[in-house]
Structures are given as C-alpha cells and as structure tokens.
C-alpha cells in the first residue's frame, strides 16, 4: 500500500532523544511514548504523548533502582498516584537529532525536580542569576 505520510521507526528515531523547548532549552529525554487506541473500531494506536522523567524512566530501568526512582517521582508529586509526566504529542514541532517543542519548558509537567533543586539549593548561592563573567572583545 502507498502511504503519503512520513514513516519512522519509533525506537530508533524518537525514543531516548533529547527534548528541546521553544526557547532552545533542554526539557528532558523521550523516556517513553504513550500509545492510545482510537475510540471505536479496531484501528492501530496513535502516538498521543511523550512520557518523560523519573515516572517514565523507572519502568525502563526496572529492578530495585527503577522502584527507587519511581518513589522519588511520587514523593515530588502533590497527587497520591501520579502517572509519568506527559508532553502531549501535539506540542511537538519537529524532530531529527532532537525533539523540538512549541512550548517553553516552564509550561510542561517535566520541570518539577528542576524547580525544587533551583529553589532549595542553587538560588541560595550568590551569582546564580548571572551569566559567567564575560570577556569582551578578542
């Protein structure tokens, strides 16, 4: 059958790729993909979201390390039984070597641990806001 649409292999080209937000900042890795079966009928599932963060990574690592990671994720989350952090696939702009999004990092669920470390530790150290000392000219 002829398909007009682009064809890719998900494991090779999407999985484990760096995610970059609309401002060029790094927003995690594609730790997993969410596949959803369409409502009625028995058509093939659609990629509906990227799953990222410890909630998603824990399942792939498995074993004791994975369960520990899962508990870290749950502890950081206000809800009692959180699923992994989700980035709806509609937010993806394009992907090649990395996956580029149309939204800034702050609007995504994945920023939780980053915010905690920033607010609890890094912000307390002088110089945290500044760009490193610049060298003019040359």
């Amino acid at each position: 059958m002829e398909y007009a649409g682009r064809m890719i292999d998900a494991g090779l080209q999407l999985l484990d790729r760096q995610i970059i937000d609309v401002n060029g900042e790094m927003a995690g890795n594609v730790d997993d993909l969410e596949l959803t079966f369409p409502g009625e009928g028995t058509g093939p599932p659609i990629v509906t979201a990227i799953l990222a963060g410890p909630g998603a990574l824990s399942r792939r690592i498995g074993g004791r390390l994975g369960s520990w990671l899962e508990s870290v994720h749950e502890r950081l989350h206000p809800h009692p039984d959180p699923g992994p952090a989700r980035i709806p696939f509609g937010v993806v702009k394009k992907f090649n070597a990395a996956v580029e999004l149309t939204l800034p990092r702050a609007e995504l669920e994945v920023d939780r641990l980053e915010k905690w470390v920033r607010d609890t530790i890094i912000s307390k150290i002088p110089g945290a806001e500044n760009e490193a000392a610049t060298e003019e000219g040359g």
Binding site: E25, V117, R118, A128
Partner: peptide, 23 residues
C-alpha cells in the same frame, strides 16, 4: 549525568537555569 537524563546543562546558561547540573 545531565545528558543522560536530558536535564539542562552547561556553563553557557546562568546557573539558575541549570540547577541540577551545577548540583
């Protein structure tokens, strides 16, 4: 560590923007 997990890394951003890297 940052590159494995996909965290922001680097000295090209202020430390506030890459807290886990600096930690």
């Amino acid at each position: 560590v940052s590159q494995y997990f996909g965290w922001q890394w680097g000295k090209f951003v202020p430390p506030k923007k890459a807290p886990r890297f600096h930690l």
